[in-house]
Design a protein around this nucleic acid. Structure first.
Lengths: 230, 230
DNA sequence: AGATGTCAGTTACGCCAGTAACATTCGAAA
DNA sequence: TTTCGAATGTTACTGGCGTAACTGACATCT
């Protein structure tokens, strides 16, 4: 296992609903359904939607977030192929969150009611789903802790480490973030202005904690980021 | 229904795991178990614990939160009688969260394994539990949104409204918060210093959006708080 | 090639919030 | 009742962040 791979796996939870594909979900729900194609910036579902549907991402990246009444966007999570998206419809209609493709993506759409039906006969699957929800919750609490107690550089490092463990790919000694995230989007993940993110990223870059590569794909030096002290 | 009651029920989710008592959980898990007694500030479970146990609160209030590496405390939620506490053990050992009694409290302790066993034969219960987790998650995302996009007065108002809907009791035209929360604890819920909370609370009080009553128990004018504009 | 649009980098300015230090009030124990 | 400690209220100083306003780099479209 390379240093980069080790660095990846040290990291805590994969909060996204990974690996559901490899369970019986796949057999029970997905066969015979075609994947929908989404263009970059296309909306899978939006705040206010009343359809209770869940998506199984097959390709690409999807951002989960919301819009505030003042029109600001906030991003909770980035999900990738193999993840489930839209699980919050289990309790709220109309929806309060939204999911948007970050680049061309494919996903299979399944009504929530069919999932519940499938689960009803399959307790093991339900226990697993419960654990997955629990992981999401733990991740959300982590974000609350970070937002409430860290300054911008600290929050930025936390978000980057979270991205590395969720969607990162080993690239030599470093970890690459395969999704293209604008600084604006990163700023919506750390709760700060884009300008601050710009300077904070450059500060981290000057210290050798990360590099930019083509088209803004970040290269993270995870170990260095982890023992970052302001 | 009084104005205060109406104001309470308009409010969104009760994120705490309310009403599990009234389901079959009660019959399946609780009979024959004695409630444990906790003194004020006594710890139900702490960061680092490896026991997978869940508590059913019967009396009093419990704060759920964590301690940051720098020693700061962050509070995610306040739970009361009828709520479940400790559900995060479904996915993480050692624990990363902690639960502390706010005042003398009673709770029944049940190992997580026994809950899973009980759930296995009871799909309906599991679906319900799933919804409850989902509510918690939605509430956590709300907090992220608030922390990332609002200034201190806004965050404070959000937290107070959340408390009103979760643990508030109608008291005339207002809603009373029956738990005694210090300003320090409120500050750990809004991600700000205690001093700022002091001045912000006084500012809200001067505008007639809330009152102090005996022993710091807050009286909230929910409708006024809801259309609060800085 | 030029026009257009988006994203990144940078600055000046003002305000809000963290820090520190202290005064005051209140409640509970002695 | 007195006393002590904890919680609250308040202030001055300072640093960090939001705001606004540009500049430059790059890509795409016409």
């Amino acid at each position: 296992m390379s240093a980069a791979e080790a660095a990846l796996h040290e990291s805590s939870v994969s909060s996204a609903l990974v690996s559901i594909f490899r369970g019986k979900f796949c057999d029970a729900l997905l066969p015979g359904r075609g994947a929908l194609h989404f263009a970059a910036d296309e909306i899978l579902y939006d705040v206010g939607d009343r359809n209770r549907v869940v998506f199984f991402v097959r390709k690409g990246f999807v951002k989960i977030g919301t819009l505030t009444p003042e029109g600001r966007e906030v991003i909770y999570d980035i999900r990738k192929d193999g993840d489930v998206v839209g699980e919050l419809c289990a309790c709220h209609t109309p929806r309060r969150d939204r999911a948007v493709a970050l680049e061309p993506a494919e996903a299979i759409r399944v009504p929530y009611s069919e999932i519940v039906d499938a689960l009803r006969g399959n307790p093991d699957l339900l226990v697993k789903l419960l654990e997955i929800f629990c992981n999401c919750l733990a991740d959300a609490y982590d974000q609350i802790t970070t937002l409430a107690s860290q300054d911008l550089p600290g929050r930025l490092v936390q978000v980057l480490l979270g991205l590395a463990s969720k969607i990162g790919r080993p690239a030599g000694e470093a970890v690459q973030i395969p999704a293209y995230l604008t600084q604006e989007e990163i700023s919506q993940m750390v709760g700060a202005r884009r300008e601050r993110v710009s300077t904070a990223l450059n500060s981290l870059r000057r210290r050798g904690l990360l590099e930019y590569s083509s088209r803004g794909h970040l290269l993270l030096h995870v170990a260095a980021l982890r023992d970052f002290a302001p």
